[in-house]
C-alpha cells in the first residue's frame, strides 16, 4: 500500500490570518495528502503535541505577525526534545530574507514567502518525503 504523507498545518502565535494556511492545506489535500489542521492561536507546545500525536511526516507553520523568529525555533527545539526532530518542518508567512537564513540554521527546512505557488509547496513536500523514505 502506498504510504500516505501526513502533514500538520499549524497556526502558532496570535495572528488570525489563516488564508494562506487554509489554501495550502487544501492544496496538500488535493495532492493526495492527509492534512491535519490545528486551527488558530496555537502555542508551540500545542503544535508539537499535535505533531507527535498525529505522527505527521511534515509540520507546516504559518505566522504573519512577526513572531516567527521566536516561535519557529521554539517549535523545532521542542520537537527535538520530544524525539520528533526527524519531521520535515516548513514555514510560510511574512518573513524577511535575513530571518529565512536564521530559521534554516535552526532547522526549518524551507520557508515559503508570499507569491509561492501551492504547486511548489506540494512538489517540494513530495520530493523531500520520497528522498527520506529511501
Amino acid at each position: 500500500m502506498e504510504r500516505k504523507i501526513r502533514v500538520l498545518v499549524a497556526k502558532p502565535g496570535l495572528d488570525g490570518h489563516d488564508r494562506g494556511a487554509k489554501v495550502v492545506a487544501s492544496a496538500l489535500r488535493d495532492a493526495g495528502m492527509e492534512v491535519v489542521y490545528t486551527g488558530l492561536h496555537q502555542t508551540p507546545e500545542m503544535v508539537v503535541e499535535a505533531a507527535i500525536q498525529e505522527d505527521v511526516d511534515v509540520v507546516g507553520l504559518s505566522i504573519l505577525s512577526g513572531a516567527h523568529a521566536v516561535l519557529f525555533p521554539k517549535i523545532v527545539d521542542l520537537l527535538k526534545e520530544r524525539g520528533a526532530g526527524d519531521k520535515l518542518v516548513i514555514a510560510g508567512g511574512i518573513i524577511p530574507e535575513d530571518d529565512v537564513e536564521e530559521l534554516k540554521k535552526v532547522g526549518i527546512a524551507n520557508v515559503f514567502g508570499p507569491g509561492t505557488t501551492t504547486t511548489e509547496i506540494t512538489e517540494y513536500v513530495k520530493k523531500e518525503i520520497a528522498s527520506r523514505s529511501k
Binding site: 487544501s26 489535500r29 492534512v35 489542521y37 490545528t38 486551527g39
Partner: peptide, 8 residues
C-alpha cells in the same frame, strides 16, 4: 487526500 480538522 483528506483534511482532518477535528482538533480545531
Amino acid at each position: 487526500g483528506a483534511l482532518l480538522g477535528d482538533r480545531i
